[in-house]
Protein backbone atom coordinates (compact mmCIF):
# COMPACT_ATOMS: atom_id res chain seq x y z
CA UNK A 1 0.00 0.00 0.00
CA UNK A 2 1.15 3.53 -0.78
CA UNK A 3 2.45 4.91 2.51
CA UNK A 4 3.35 8.37 1.18
CA UNK A 5 1.02 11.26 0.40
CA UNK A 6 -2.48 9.92 -0.27
CA UNK A 7 -3.14 9.48 -3.96
CA UNK A 8 0.41 10.40 -5.01
CA UNK A 9 1.25 8.03 -7.83
CA UNK A 10 4.79 9.36 -8.22
CA UNK A 11 5.33 8.55 -4.54
CA UNK A 12 4.06 5.03 -5.17
CA UNK A 13 6.47 4.68 -8.09
CA UNK A 14 9.38 5.84 -5.92
CA UNK A 15 8.48 3.30 -3.22
CA UNK A 16 8.77 0.62 -5.87
CA UNK A 17 12.08 1.99 -7.19
CA UNK A 18 10.52 3.08 -10.45
CA UNK A 19 11.80 6.41 -11.78
CA UNK A 20 10.04 7.14 -15.04
CA UNK A 21 12.12 10.07 -16.19
CA UNK A 22 15.45 9.07 -14.71
CA UNK A 23 18.40 9.10 -17.08
CA UNK A 24 22.17 9.32 -16.88
CA UNK A 25 23.81 12.31 -18.45
CA UNK A 26 25.87 11.98 -21.60
CA UNK A 27 27.58 14.43 -23.86
CA UNK A 28 27.45 12.00 -26.76
CA UNK A 29 23.73 12.03 -27.36
CA UNK A 30 22.51 10.81 -30.73
CA UNK A 31 20.53 13.02 -33.08
CA UNK A 32 17.22 13.53 -31.34
CA UNK A 33 13.79 12.98 -32.74
CA UNK A 34 11.55 16.04 -32.40
CA UNK A 35 7.81 16.39 -32.47
CA UNK A 36 6.85 19.72 -33.97
CA UNK A 37 4.04 22.23 -34.08
CA UNK A 38 1.07 21.81 -31.83
CA UNK A 39 -1.42 24.45 -30.84
CA UNK A 40 -4.68 25.04 -29.03
CA UNK A 41 -7.23 27.80 -29.35
CA UNK A 42 -10.63 28.58 -27.97
CA UNK A 43 -13.57 28.31 -30.31
CA UNK A 44 -17.25 28.92 -29.63
CA UNK A 45 -17.95 25.63 -27.85
CA UNK A 46 -14.65 24.86 -26.16
CA UNK A 47 -11.00 24.33 -27.02
CA UNK A 48 -9.60 22.85 -30.21
CA UNK A 49 -6.18 21.22 -29.90
CA UNK A 50 -4.32 20.30 -33.06
CA UNK A 51 -0.97 19.00 -34.17
CA UNK A 52 0.74 18.06 -37.39
CA UNK A 53 1.84 14.45 -37.81
CA UNK A 54 5.56 14.91 -38.49
CA UNK A 55 8.51 13.85 -36.33
CA UNK A 56 12.01 14.78 -37.46
CA UNK A 57 15.61 14.12 -36.49
CA UNK A 58 17.85 16.76 -38.00
CA UNK A 59 16.89 16.91 -41.65
CA UNK A 60 15.39 13.42 -41.61
CA UNK A 61 11.62 12.90 -41.49
CA UNK A 62 11.30 10.07 -38.97
CA UNK A 63 7.53 9.64 -39.30
CA UNK A 64 4.61 11.45 -40.87
CA UNK A 65 1.78 9.87 -38.90
CA UNK A 66 2.62 10.73 -35.31
CA UNK A 67 -0.14 11.55 -32.83
CA UNK A 68 1.05 14.41 -30.62
CA UNK A 69 -2.31 15.23 -29.05
CA UNK A 70 -2.81 12.87 -26.14
CA UNK A 71 -5.92 12.44 -24.04
CA UNK A 72 -4.78 12.51 -20.43
CA UNK A 73 -8.24 12.02 -18.98
CA UNK A 74 -11.80 12.79 -20.03
CA UNK A 75 -11.26 16.49 -19.34
CA UNK A 76 -7.68 17.23 -20.34
CA UNK A 77 -5.44 17.06 -23.37
CA UNK A 78 -1.68 17.27 -23.69
CA UNK A 79 -0.12 18.53 -26.93
CA UNK A 80 3.54 17.60 -27.08
CA UNK A 81 6.40 19.35 -28.79
CA UNK A 82 10.01 18.49 -28.26
CA UNK A 83 11.62 15.12 -27.69
CA UNK A 84 8.87 12.48 -27.94
CA UNK A 85 10.73 9.97 -25.79
CA UNK A 86 10.34 12.22 -22.77
CA UNK A 87 7.02 13.76 -23.78
CA UNK A 88 5.23 10.43 -24.25
CA UNK A 89 6.57 9.25 -20.90
CA UNK A 90 5.29 12.42 -19.24
CA UNK A 91 1.90 11.82 -20.82
CA UNK A 92 1.85 8.24 -19.55
CA UNK A 93 2.78 9.33 -16.02
CA UNK A 94 0.00 11.92 -16.10
CA UNK A 95 -2.60 9.49 -17.45
CA UNK A 96 -1.91 6.87 -14.79
CA UNK A 97 -1.42 9.30 -11.92
CA UNK A 98 -4.64 11.24 -12.59
CA UNK A 99 -6.61 8.00 -12.81
CA UNK A 100 -4.83 6.70 -9.71
CA UNK A 101 -5.73 9.79 -7.74
CA UNK A 102 -9.36 9.73 -8.87
CA UNK A 103 -9.83 6.07 -7.98
CA UNK A 104 -7.85 5.99 -4.75
CA UNK A 105 -9.13 9.29 -3.34
CA UNK A 106 -12.67 8.93 -4.73
CA UNK A 107 -12.57 12.41 -6.24
CA UNK A 108 -11.00 13.89 -9.36
CA UNK A 109 -7.75 15.80 -9.15
CA UNK A 110 -8.29 19.55 -9.18
CA UNK A 111 -7.46 21.48 -12.31
CA UNK A 112 -4.75 23.38 -10.48
CA UNK A 113 -3.08 20.16 -9.37
CA UNK A 114 -3.21 18.77 -12.93
CA UNK A 115 -1.50 21.88 -14.22
CA UNK A 116 1.18 21.64 -11.51
CA UNK A 117 1.68 17.92 -12.12
CA UNK A 118 2.97 18.65 -15.60
CA UNK A 119 5.22 21.42 -14.27
CA UNK A 120 6.63 18.94 -11.75
CA UNK A 121 7.41 16.42 -14.49
CA UNK A 122 9.14 19.09 -16.54
CA UNK A 123 11.25 20.05 -13.55
CA UNK A 124 12.18 16.41 -12.98
CA UNK A 125 13.34 16.38 -16.57
CA UNK A 126 15.56 19.40 -15.91
CA UNK A 127 18.95 17.58 -16.15
CA UNK A 128 18.19 16.37 -19.66
CA UNK A 129 16.64 19.71 -20.60
CA UNK A 130 19.79 21.56 -19.53
CA UNK A 131 21.91 19.17 -21.58
CA UNK A 132 19.69 19.89 -24.55
CA UNK A 133 18.86 16.26 -25.18
CA UNK A 134 15.39 15.91 -23.67
CA UNK A 135 13.65 19.22 -24.14
CA UNK A 136 9.85 19.13 -23.93
CA UNK A 137 7.62 22.21 -24.31
CA UNK A 138 4.01 21.08 -24.07
CA UNK A 139 0.62 22.72 -24.29
CA UNK A 140 -2.02 21.55 -21.82
CA UNK A 141 -5.75 22.14 -22.24
CA UNK A 142 -8.40 21.31 -19.70
CA UNK A 143 -11.95 22.20 -18.74
CA UNK A 144 -13.04 23.32 -15.32
CA UNK A 145 -16.56 23.18 -13.91
CA UNK A 146 -17.64 26.49 -12.37
CA UNK A 147 -21.15 25.94 -11.08
CA UNK A 148 -23.28 25.14 -14.10
CA UNK A 149 -20.70 26.48 -16.53
CA UNK A 150 -17.73 24.65 -17.95
CA UNK A 151 -14.72 26.88 -18.50
CA UNK A 152 -11.97 25.73 -20.87
CA UNK A 153 -8.40 26.70 -20.06
CA UNK A 154 -5.18 26.53 -22.06
CA UNK A 155 -1.71 26.45 -20.50
CA UNK A 156 1.71 26.46 -22.09
CA UNK A 157 5.00 25.64 -20.41
CA UNK A 158 8.60 26.46 -20.89
CA UNK A 159 11.03 23.53 -20.83
CA UNK A 160 12.02 24.31 -17.24
CA UNK A 161 8.47 23.83 -15.98
CA UNK A 162 7.13 27.36 -15.76
CA UNK A 163 3.43 27.40 -16.60
CA UNK A 164 1.52 30.21 -18.26
CA UNK A 165 -2.19 30.43 -18.86
CA UNK A 166 -3.10 31.53 -22.37
CA UNK A 167 -6.16 33.69 -22.84
CA UNK A 168 -7.11 32.65 -26.35
CA UNK A 169 -4.47 30.37 -27.81
CA UNK A 170 -1.08 28.74 -27.31
CA UNK A 171 1.39 27.05 -29.62
CA UNK A 172 4.62 25.11 -29.27
CA UNK A 173 7.20 23.47 -31.47
CA UNK A 174 9.29 24.61 -34.40
CA UNK A 175 6.31 25.95 -36.34
CA UNK A 176 4.84 27.76 -33.37
CA UNK A 177 6.11 31.20 -34.40
CA UNK A 178 4.05 31.14 -37.54
CA UNK A 179 1.08 29.58 -35.78
CA UNK A 180 1.07 32.25 -33.07
CA UNK A 181 1.31 35.00 -35.65
CA UNK A 182 -1.65 33.67 -37.62
CA UNK A 183 -3.74 33.03 -34.52
CA UNK A 184 -2.95 36.45 -33.09
CA UNK A 185 -3.75 38.18 -36.37
CA UNK A 186 -7.03 36.32 -36.77
CA UNK A 187 -8.09 36.95 -33.17
CA UNK A 188 -7.33 40.69 -33.38
CA UNK A 189 -8.16 41.60 -36.94
CA UNK A 190 -9.93 38.64 -38.51
CA UNK A 191 -13.49 38.89 -39.76
CA UNK A 192 -14.34 35.73 -37.87
CA UNK A 193 -12.36 35.46 -34.67
CA UNK A 194 -11.27 31.93 -33.62
CA UNK A 195 -13.07 32.34 -30.31
CA UNK A 196 -16.39 32.79 -32.14
CA UNK A 197 -15.94 30.02 -34.70
CA UNK A 198 -18.18 26.99 -34.97
CA UNK A 199 -16.47 23.61 -34.78
CA UNK A 200 -16.58 23.27 -38.54
CA UNK A 201 -14.99 26.67 -39.03
CA UNK A 202 -12.43 25.93 -36.33
CA UNK A 203 -11.37 22.68 -37.99
CA UNK A 204 -10.98 24.43 -41.33
CA UNK A 205 -9.03 27.22 -39.67
CA UNK A 206 -6.72 24.70 -37.95
CA UNK A 207 -6.00 23.11 -41.34
CA UNK A 208 -5.13 26.52 -42.76
CA UNK A 209 -2.88 27.39 -39.84
CA UNK A 210 -0.93 24.16 -40.22
CA UNK A 211 -0.66 24.66 -43.96
CA UNK A 212 0.86 28.10 -43.48
CA UNK A 213 3.18 26.82 -40.73
CA UNK A 214 4.43 24.05 -43.01
CA UNK A 215 5.33 26.63 -45.67
CA UNK A 216 7.79 28.29 -43.30
CA UNK A 217 9.00 25.29 -41.30
CA UNK A 218 10.30 22.12 -42.93
CA UNK A 219 9.71 20.15 -39.73
CA UNK A 220 5.98 20.85 -39.79
CA UNK A 221 3.94 18.29 -41.70
CA UNK A 222 1.12 20.55 -42.82
CA UNK A 223 -2.06 19.22 -44.38
CA UNK A 224 -2.15 17.05 -47.47
CA UNK A 225 -5.76 16.40 -48.49
CA UNK A 226 -4.65 13.74 -50.95
CA UNK A 227 -3.42 11.58 -48.10
CA UNK A 228 -5.83 9.94 -45.71
CA UNK A 229 -3.69 10.89 -42.70
CA UNK A 230 -5.22 14.11 -41.38
CA UNK A 231 -3.71 16.30 -38.69
CA UNK A 232 -4.75 15.16 -35.26
CA UNK A 233 -7.47 17.45 -33.96
CA UNK A 234 -9.25 16.92 -30.65
CA UNK A 235 -11.95 19.00 -29.08
CA UNK A 236 -12.48 19.72 -25.41
CA UNK A 237 -15.93 20.94 -24.47
CA UNK A 238 -18.60 20.51 -21.82
CA UNK A 239 -18.81 16.79 -22.68
CA UNK A 240 -15.08 16.21 -22.30
CA UNK A 241 -12.59 15.12 -24.93
CA UNK A 242 -13.62 14.12 -28.45
CA UNK A 243 -11.63 13.15 -31.54
CA UNK A 244 -12.41 14.97 -34.77
CA UNK A 245 -13.15 12.15 -37.21
CA UNK A 246 -11.96 11.89 -40.82
CA UNK A 247 -15.44 12.75 -42.12
CA UNK A 248 -15.39 16.00 -40.15
CA UNK A 249 -12.02 16.93 -41.65
CA UNK A 250 -13.48 16.35 -45.11
CA UNK A 251 -16.66 18.29 -44.31
CA UNK A 252 -14.67 21.23 -43.05
CA UNK A 253 -12.63 21.37 -46.23
CA UNK A 254 -15.70 21.09 -48.47
CA UNK A 255 -16.87 24.50 -47.36
CA UNK A 256 -13.84 26.10 -48.94
CA UNK A 257 -10.61 27.40 -47.57
Amino acid sequence: MNTGIAGDFLGLLAQNNLRPLAAESSTRAPEQTHATTVFAFRFRDGVLVAGDRRATAGNVIVADDVNKIIEIDRHSLLAIAGVPAMAFEMARVMQVSFAYYRRSQLQPLSQEAKVRALARLLRENLPLTLQGVGVVAPVFATVEAQGDKVVPRIYFYDPLGAQFEAVAFAASGSGSGTVRSVLSFQERFGEVKPSTMTLNQAIRFAHNVLTVASEFDAATGGVDPLRTVWPVIKVLDANGVRDVEAAEHLDARKEGV
Binding site: M1, N2, N16, V96, Y100, S104
Partner: peptide, 17 residues
Protein backbone atom coordinates in the same frame (compact mmCIF):
# COMPACT_ATOMS: atom_id res chain seq x y z
CA UNK B 1 -10.39 0.55 2.54
CA UNK B 2 -7.07 -1.28 3.01
CA UNK B 3 -7.99 -3.91 0.44
CA UNK B 4 -9.31 -1.31 -1.98
CA UNK B 5 -6.06 0.67 -1.77
CA UNK B 6 -3.97 -2.48 -2.20
CA UNK B 7 -5.87 -3.44 -5.32
CA UNK B 8 -5.72 0.07 -6.78
CA UNK B 9 -1.98 0.35 -6.08
CA UNK B 10 -1.27 -3.02 -7.65
CA UNK B 11 -3.46 -2.36 -10.70
CA UNK B 12 -1.92 1.04 -11.44
CA UNK B 13 1.64 -0.14 -10.95
CA UNK B 14 0.93 -3.00 -13.34
CA UNK B 15 -0.63 -0.64 -15.88
CA UNK B 16 2.30 1.75 -15.66
CA UNK B 17 5.11 -0.78 -15.82
Amino acid sequence: ERVRQMLIDAAHLEAFT
